[in-house]
């Protein structure tokens, strides 16, 4: 089987962001067909003292080894994909994501995550977001074990 070697992930240009949350609205349109920002968006823009920061999945894939039913897979383009029809809503991936990027909205039991679709990039009026290609070995992370010691 052919394995992807690269993946596109979001890059944030904080200095350009004006906090309008158009990206969040675009993302919740992708996942829930609504225009709400906030908990239905896979990307979150967080106000900090200095300005804004971005919080989103970077396709590291630690969750892949958490899913008991194989709902999480790495697709050909390298993106970590959650198949809602297979998912049984256990929240293992949500609980174990080291950066909290696997998200859960109250409206349904299955979580959701960034699929690097670029909707938010296009929606951003300030061009503060960009999809960049990175090498998979540079981002992948495997679930932690104490290694028996």
């Amino acid at each position: 089987m052919d394995h992807p070697t690269t993946v596109k992930i979001l890059k944030f240009h904080a200095e350009k962001c004006n906090g309008c949350l158009e990206c969040e609205k675009a993302c919740s349109q992708v996942h829930f067909k609504t225009k709400d920002d906030g908990e239905k968006s896979a990307i979150r823009i967080i106000k900090t003292e200095k300005g804004y920061s971005m919080h989103v999945c970077d396709q590291r894939g630690l969750c892949l080894d958490m899913c008991p039913v194989g709902a999480l897979t790495r697709r050909k383009n390298g993106v970590v994909w959650l198949d809602v029809n297979t998912c049984i809503g256990c929240q293992a991936c949500v609980g174990f994501c080291p950066i909290g990027a696997m998200r859960k909205a109250d409206v349904r039991i299955e979580p959701f995550k960034c699929i690097s679709c670029g909707s938010c990039v296009r929606a951003c009026p300030e061009k503060a977001l960009e999809l960049v290609e990175v090498k998979l070995p540079d981002v992948t992370q495997v679930v932690y074990h104490k290694l028996g010691a």
């Binding site: 256990c90 609980g95 039991i109």
Partner: peptide, 24 residues
């Protein structure tokens, strides 16, 4: 077939919350 709410819990949001807390 079954999914995360096949038990039809009275309050699935509260259930997911307490469960996720334990996962963490």
């Amino acid at each position: 077939r079954f999914d995360g709410v096949s038990n039809h819990p009275a309050n699935p949001v509260a259930l997911a919350k307490v469960g996720t807390k334990l996962h963490k």
